[in-house]
Amino acid sequence: MRRFFSAMVQRPIAAIVSGITLIGQRLPSRQLIDGSVSRFIYTLIRPVVIESGDDRNSQTNRRE
């Protein structure tokens, strides 16, 4: 449930916040748009790193 909440609520909000943090910076408009959109997408598509757990997207327990 916590994971579901994180995926459906926290991450989209974090993506929006990450995108708009650049607005205060002195940047040419094109770089500002590029930066904001890239940060928004990057936050959404970044695989979640989980310390433990057995689900497929968790990124621990390597076989090597």
Binding site: I41, L44, D55, R56, S58
Partner: peptide, 15 residues
């Protein structure tokens, strides 16, 4: 994905 414990909805939707 919402019914799966491993479902990463934002990533799957973006993809």
């Amino acid at each position: 994905s919402p019914f799966s414990p491993s479902g990463d909805v934002p990533r799957l939707t973006t993809k």
